[in-house]
Amino acid sequence: MPDSDDILDAPGPTAPVDGASAVLDPAVPSSMPAGSEGAGGDGSAVAALDLTAPASAPVDPEGYQIRLRNFEGPLDLLLFLIKKKKVEINDIPIAVITREYLAYLGQLEKMDIDREAEFLLMAAVLIYIKSQTLLPREQVLEPDFEPKQRSIDHLLPYDRIKAVVELLRDKEEEQAQIWQRSALTAPLPDGDLDLVEVSLFDLAESFFALMKRKQAETARVFKGKEISMADKMSEIVEALKAQGAIDFLDYLWAQETLEEALIAFFCLLELIKARAVMAVQEQLFHTIKVWLRKDAPEKDES
C-alpha cells in the first residue's frame, strides 16, 4: 500500500545494513523520541529504518521474520512487545513491514494460508493501533484513552468474574438441594456434557437385569462358535454407523447367546472407555442409547 506511506511512515535515508543492529534492544525504543513522526514527517525517528532489506527476504521455516533496525523477529513478538509497551509503536515503520512482506509473498512458491492469514491479522492490528495514535484525537475522548483497550474497558475484569464464579457455585450448591417436580419430566442441566452420560453402574444394572431374562429363556447352546472381542467391536461400530444409535438393552437382547451378550457388553464398555462411543440416557427412567461419538478418534480396534 504505497499510498499509506505518507501517513504511516516517512521513509528515511537508507541506513547501512548491520546484522548486529537488527537484534532487538529494549534500550533503543525507550530512548527514541516518541511521536516524532507525523504526516509528512521529517523521518528523524524513522531514519534508523533499514530500508535496504534485500528483495530476497528470507524464507524462514518458522515464518516470516521482520527485520528492522530496532527489531528482528516474528510479528507476533513485535505486537506483544508493543502491547506491553516495551516497544514504541511510533518507532515501527509499518509501511516498510508491509512492503517487505508483500515482496516476500511474491517470492513464495507455495503459500501457507493459515500462517499468512495470521500474519495479516496481526498486521491489521498493528496498523489499527498505529492509525489510532496518528489520528488527531477528539477532545471528548477520555484523556487516558487507549485504542487497544477501548473494547474491553467497559467489561467486568477477570478477578471480579472469579468472585462471581464463587458466588454462583454456592448458589448452584444451594439450589442443587432443592427439588421441584419438573425434575421428573425434564433432564437437568449439565455442565460438561451435552447429554446425561450414564455411569458404569447404570450400564451394569441394565445388563444384570438382562442376563436374568436371558438365563431364563435359554436352553440353546451353540458350541464351536467363538466370537472375538475385536470382531464384536467392529460389528457394534458397523451397527452404529448404519443406524446412528442403538438401544443398549435391545442390542444385547438381540444377541444369540448369553456368552455373546456378555462379549457385546464388554465390547461396549471398551468402546466407551476408548471414547469411541457414548452411552446416553436422554431422560430419567428412559432407555440407554449408545451413539458413535462424532469427535471419536478414527481408530480401528481390530
Binding site: H154, L156, I161, L168, A176, G191
Partner: peptide, 20 residues
C-alpha cells in the same frame, strides 16, 4: 447420585455474560 454441576469454565463464561 449427584447432580451435574457446571464446569468451572462454563461458570466463568456464564459470569462474564451475566455481568456484561
Amino acid at each position: 447420585e449427584r447432580r451435574k454441576k457446571l464446569s468451572g469454565q462454563a461458570l466463568e463464561v456464564l459470569s462474564a455474560i451475566a455481568y456484561n
